[in-house]
Simulated assay, not measured.
Amino acid sequence: MAGAAGSAGADRVDSAGRKTLAIIGAGHLGRTMGRLWHDAGLLRIGDVVTRSDASAEEAAAFIGAGRPVSAIEKLAKADLFLLATPDGALPSTCAALAAHGAFGPDSVVFHCSGALTSSALDAARVVGAQTASIHPIRSFAQPEQVLQNFAGTWCGIEGDEVALAVIAPLFERLGAKLVSIRPEAKTLYHAAAVFASNYLVTLGDAALAAYAGAGIAREDALQLIAPLMQNTLANLLAHGPEAALSGPVARGDMETVARHAAALGQSDPQLEQLYLALVERTSAVAARR
């Protein structure tokens, strides 16, 4: 097993000319991206690093390549480093890798966080590495599903030009579509994705809870909300929010809105608060009609 980071330098590029990728933090995103690049023959997968031998072995097995490693002190040299740890651990993990000597002037270090910019990798910049942030705008909760339909995924990108010149083509060759974002706007960009994805789930959960309060079984409620959410989303994407909006607020029927709020308050006060919090923004959309 390799010891120091520089011990495997001669083996970084294989006979096919592929660069070596080290993956640090091989959860759903890390292992999925590794598998995509491995299956496409775009990168040679080097070390796959997680906190335990068992999880590292599981991740490498999913990817179908790579050497399982459970400590960065055992990390072999690579050309590219994907840091796919939780957001809170990104700066400290990068600093630990830099202190270990994993990075150099010829290294490209990147992460796929939607909330953090490439500045989370400043410790790598200090030692001369090039850094970037490339955020796939999609859920990785079901890795097998992502493997089947990653093509067409939009990715927000920012970082050093040299790093992006290396990393961007690797995503594009998987069928990704790239959009440049300003680092200072990254948090707002990520909040937009939370609205579009996470809070859509929250609204679906709220609808199920309200149906439950009305005595409708969950399996039936799911069937009720499916066409409503699917058709509304289709209209939103095809025609924009103003044309897609319907319902009492769009009609100016505030008496019905008040009755809804009162009924929700009796059933679940938290649902009432959520409902009322959405009325003002919905009214603004209706005003643009």
Rank of each mutant, 00 (worst) to 15 (best):
M1A: 02
M1V: 03
A2V: 02
G6W: 00
G6Y: 02
G9A: 12
R12V: 15
R12H: 15
D14R: 11
A16M: 02
T20I: 13
G27V: 08
L29I: 08
T32M: 11
R35P: 01
L42K: 13
L43D: 14
I45K: 02
V49W: 14
V49M: 06
D53I: 14
S55Y: 10
A56H: 12
A59H: 03
F62A: 03
G64H: 03
P68V: 04
S70A: 09
A71D: 05
E73C: 04
K74N: 00
A89R: 10
P91C: 14
A95W: 11
A96I: 13
A96S: 15
L97N: 07
F103L: 05
G104I: 05
P105F: 02
S107K: 06
V108L: 02
V109A: 04
G114L: 11
S119P: 14
Q130F: 07
T131S: 03
T131M: 00
P136M: 00
S139T: 12
A141Y: 09
A141H: 09
Q142Y: 13
Q142E: 15
E144G: 13
N149S: 14
G152C: 11
G156Q: 13
G159P: 14
E161A: 06
A165F: 01
R173S: 14
K177T: 03
L178E: 05
V179K: 03
S180G: 06
I181K: 01
P183H: 13
P183D: 14
K186N: 01
Y189G: 05
H190C: 01
H190W: 06
A193T: 08
V194P: 09
F195W: 12
A196R: 08
S197W: 00
L200G: 02
L200V: 03
V201D: 12
L203P: 09
A206E: 08
L208M: 11
Y211L: 14
G213Q: 09
A214D: 10
A214M: 02
E219K: 00
D220N: 10
A221P: 09
L222I: 10
M229C: 05
L233A: 11
L236A: 00
A243M: 12
S246N: 14
A250D: 15
R251Y: 07
D253A: 09
M254F: 15
R259S: 09
A261C: 14
A263F: 07
L264A: 01
Q266P: 08
E272W: 01
L274D: 03
L276K: 07
L276V: 15
S283M: 15
A284T: 13
A287G: 13
R289T: 08
